[in-house]
Design a protein around this nucleic acid. Structure first.
Lengths: 233, 233
DNA sequence: GTCTATAAAGTGATAGAC
DNA sequence: GTCTATCACTTTATAGAC
């Protein structure tokens, strides 16, 4: 249904997968080419041969997941808009379109949930100041689209307020992804549902409430007793 | 009233200040001892002479601000609890005790607001996986105290939900500090109030709403038309 | 205390043999 | 395509002169 992860051939794939694992664990700055080639059982020169440079590999790793998430987000957003047109869609459904691709894509990937989330969180929060250009372009583009739709759903909310609230929520999402392990473990096994589902459900409720605060004409469903994965991905 | 920033003598101070600036800008990993000594007009060997090692300087920089913020948070929390005893204090006042020390400490420091926030944000989100041990100890200790008080203020909320909501809010706070520049600039000059005040006011409202969602017996003041620095630090 | 010189190890990248 | 050997550079840390 949505664009799948870019397929890679043998040795390139091994390198990318090794890099993903190490980047997720230690961050993009703290991993050397030698670490990666060792993890992939490849030669030190392999990274430069296949990706031109260390940075080429970094870009490949980033785009491999950012791209599909972005695509799916946009597709879902359009679907939600079409479903409610000409009315503005409810906040919760817009935010679901924003968040749920994280879940569907992690299921398509062969990484563990934990690793996938940490990797994506690091991609979006990279600290060198600026994000990688390609990522930034896609990411900002996506944010803009969602803000535009949210502005319709929350037409009584000044745009400046909307931007700030979305900014806060983005931070919560990134933090959830990069540092969720500890809490994730805590929740696990409470019921039969996978941990990531309930976490996302919690987050979705959190985001909806925060965005809708004080906005007239926007009604929010009552809080569930305990967050459950009531929506389907 | 609250513990002031640890005073340092001449050359040590120059090194710490140079390091703060560079760390805030580029992160703790991407700055070399040479960068720091150059910025401080000191000799390359100065860092090792005065702080034992690069890591010694990192610890000094971190503790210089984390310590006072932590102290002030605890003091404010105790004051709020005493004020309302034996009742549980309202959520908003507890969160104000958590957040407002950021503002008072930035005013005491000689760094710019932007630099201070970025530095503190980086300290709390350092990506190597684990925070510096000393920071982590203080930080976790502080979080625990606030959670304990919030659990009383929100006694109808399951503790697990509280923890998750606080986790999300922490992420929003860190993101606000590390990536606030762009949005900060947007707000600046709207009225006579300094940017950081309105930002914190916004955040405080955000946190209060998110924590109180669906909790019976907790009443939240109506949203201000546009967030203003109505509370005093 | 401050400086120079240098050690010891690690970095990304590449030329050239196979 | 894969590998070894090596280049040119940077890193933190330190010994020893001043």
């Amino acid at each position: 249904m949505y664009q799948t992860i870019i397929p890679l051939s043998g040795p390139k794939l091994r390198l990318v997968e090794a890099a993903e694992k190490l980047f997720a664990d230690q961050g993009f700055d703290s991993v050397s080419v030698r670490d990666i080639t060792k993890e992939a059982n490849a030669n030190v020169a392999a990274v430069n041969y296949h990706f031109g440079s260390r940075d080429g590999l970094v870009s490949a790793v980033m785009l491999r997941y950012v791209n599909p998430v972005h695509q799916e987000r946009c597709a879902r957003l359009e679907a939600v808009e079409k479903k409610w047109a000409p009315k503005a869609p409810p906040v919760e459904e817009v935010m679901e379109a924003y968040v749920s691709p994280l879940v569907t894509q992690v299921r398509k990937s062969e990484m563990s949930e934990k690793l996938f989330c940490k990797l994506l969180g690091r991609i979006l929060s990279e600290q060198g100041g600026a994000l990688h250009p390609e990522v930034q372009l896609q990411f900002l583009n996506g944010v803009e689209r969602f803000l535009k739709t949210l502005a319709k759903s929350l037409s009584a909310l000044p745009y400046e307020d909307l931007v700030w609230r979305f900014h806060f929520i983005s931070g919560a999402m990134i933090h959830m992804m990069t540092h969720g392990e500890t809490l994730q473990a805590m929740t696990k096994g409470a019921n039969g549902v996978t941990a990531i589902d309930t976490t996302i459900a919690r987050f979705l409720r959190f985001a909806t409430i925060a965005l809708s605060d004080g906005v007239e004409g926007v009604e929010i469903p009552p809080a569930p007793k305990t967050p459950q994965a009531t929506f389907s991905f």
